[in-house]
Design a protein around this nucleic acid. Sequence first.
DNA 1: GTATTTTTATGATATAAGTCAGATACACCA
DNA 2: TGGTGTATCTGACTTATATCATAAAAATAC
Lengths: 229, 229
Amino acid sequence: MKKDKQGCDLQTCLVCKLCVKEWKPAITHERKNFALKKGAELFKEGDPVNGVYFLHTGKVKVHKHWGEEKELIVRFAKAGDIVGHRGIGTELVYPVTATVLEAATVCFFELEFFQASLKVNQDLMYEMMMFYARELQESEKRMRNLAHMPVKGRIAYALLALRDKFGRNEGGFIDFSLSRQDLASYIGATYETTFRMLNELIQENLIILSGKDIAIANEEKLRQLTLAG
Amino acid sequence: MKKDKQGCDLQTCLVCKLCVKEWKPAITHERKNFALKKGAELFKEGDPVNGVYFLHTGKVKVHKHWGEEKELIVRFAKAGDIVGHRGIGTELVYPVTATVLEAATVCFFELEFFQASLKVNQDLMYEMMMFYARELQESEKRMRNLAHMPVKGRIAYALLALRDKFGRNEGGFIDFSLSRQDLASYIGATYETTFRMLNELIQENLIILSGKDIAIANEEKLRQLTLAG
DNA sequence: GTATTTTTATGATATAAGTCAGATACACCA
DNA sequence: TGGTGTATCTGACTTATATCATAAAAATAC
């Protein structure tokens, strides 16, 4: 898969994959490519919506804030993922912030062009609808977890989900090294309790740690933690 | 499920409103109407997905379960609302249960027909996509609330949302009398804490109670509770 | 190569919310 | 009409998780 100079290969993202070929020139003309380094923000909660982004390389966290100190990470995005689609709706502002975790290159489409693309390309619209539907299912599952599952189970759930999404590297570790704080924010707990629970999981030989990296040692038992007693 | 003679008016639900007129005969031919009484289940979490429902009259709660005892109410549906759309996605089973709270009449479409309707009617598809997008936004807001907002704030948030959705009756009370247990399940707390917090809100003159019914007495202060300190 | 910030680590303590147990009121229906 | 279940109420007690404080280690900057 050869990349062009700008970064987009016109094949990875949903828009490129699902639009009819007659629309490709429009895409090439409209897309804007950016490179962002760690810590940069694609957009901030409350910003007016200007469009959607597709991640070509790198990793991004999508998070909502609560006061100055607290956040909840709603989703991690990796290459190929769409970011900013949460801005589409009745409100004209992003309900989340998108922050780069690993240096990223992105492809950007103005909202108007993206919406035009949807109307012109049935398949794209259908996939977007299904994508939202799946995200909604996942969101509501996590919502129930937050309401009823103890922190330990939520960590187990998160680790399994992260493993499924990012895969494993050579050592068998989840191929995504996130800070303990980010893991905590993702499961909706404080840094300290997350840390302690992680220790418990190590004691019980359910996971293995190597620096920041985490490997799943006993998937069966980990999964057990995600089930209601 | 009892067949309902009256059926729908071909005007209230999204399908009837947004499909091209050429599709109307198909709708009339395919739709099935049912009447359900309080306590009946449209479908249960884990059931294979057979289609989507539109509520013509009555009220329904959509809830996820955790073990035998605990549940989280994901959404309340009233006349005109779609129910069962959460079944659309990769999985072939409903991720939620739908239980009738107030006797309901519904309009049912087989999944296959509904999907055909989407493909044939752009406007319907677009609206469904936007609907999912809005639901996702709301879900993630509630998710953050569960993670970081205290129970009292979550009650305030819930009451304001219910007032907006169901409106007020003559006395100014929210036009939807739900049990304390259902309110608790909706905000993701136990019956007891919900009850106690409700009492605090009465003490502070933020709400007024009349039997099951609840009225908002001080919207400003109630809203204040939903903000981060 | 040292300074300074950020992340990781760990114990002590506080508290919000859950659990348990029981009483009272209310609705339904046989 | 009474009876049996279901919803509401209330206090005492427990616990999971947050908060606070502080230090070591690692990363980043200067």
